[in-house]
């Protein structure tokens, strides 16, 4: 009980920290904010249910006005702005990522990659694009076009999430709750 609770709370804090640290330089100066990486990791490391709750906690605190979203943003304004769809999709994305890792019993890294792509990209975009369409007064295809520049970065993050999850499985097998 306590262990579930502290994992949920500390991973919610981790998502915030990943958004607040100076941008991570990927390969030769392509900066990414690691926040959506945090969302993927919540799912792949904690599993569907705990990952979902950790992200819900994070989103609730952002809504409550803590500046935890990358760039120090926060507040209810975000939920009526262009990123609203993404914020609402975050917990679902983590859930799906965790679900895949829990149920698809192949190598952890492979399952984590599939989970991160399915949850952190497919599902997340399925929420984010309608959100942008609605708030920016665009059609769905137009909004989808607006989202494509971020796709490359998100694919890289999914790969990173998979690598890190695999590495945890080796370094701390007991800590990988999604396979516990």
């Amino acid at each position: 009980m306590e262990r579930n609770l502290t994992h949920i709370a500390l991973f919610a804090a981790l998502i915030a920290v990943l958004g607040l640290i100076p941008k991570i330089d990927l390969i030769s100066g392509v900066p990414i904010t690691a926040q959506s990486l945090g969302i993927m990791l919540c799912g792949t490391v904690l599993g569907a249910k705990r990952g979902f709750l950790a992200v819900v906690l994070f989103v609730v605190l952002v809504a409550a006005g803590l500046p935890l979203l990358s760039g120090g943003r926060g507040g209810i304004g975000l939920f009526v702005g262009p990123s609203a769809g993404y914020l609402i999709g975050f917990p679902v994305a983590a859930f799906v990522a965790g679900f895949v890792v829990e149920r698809w019993q192949v190598r952890v890294g492979v399952a984590a990659l599939a989970g991160a792509v399915l949850g952190g990209i497919v599902v997340l975009y399925a929420f984010g694009i309608p959100g942008m369409a609605l708030t920016l007064g665009k059609s769905l295809p137009e909004a989808a076009l607006l989202a494509t520049p971020f796709l490359a970065g998100d694919v890289i993050k999914a790969v990173l999430a998979a690598l890190v999850t695999q590495a945890i499985a080796q370094a701390r097998p007991g800590a990988l709750l999604s396979r516990g």
């Binding site: 306590e2 262990r3 500390l10 804090a13 981790l14 991570i24 490391v45 945890i168 701390r172 800590a175």
Partner: peptide
């Protein structure tokens, strides 16, 4: 450090979660 730093940060988070759970238990749990 770049992305290499992710691993230690994540492991530290997982370990912290275990220890904080213990501290919570020490004071009557959740």
């Amino acid at each position: 450090p770049g992305w290499r730093i992710l691993m230690p940060v994540l492991l530290a988070t997982l370990d912290d979660a275990d220890r904080v759970a213990e501290a919570l238990r020490a004071r009557g749990g959740a």
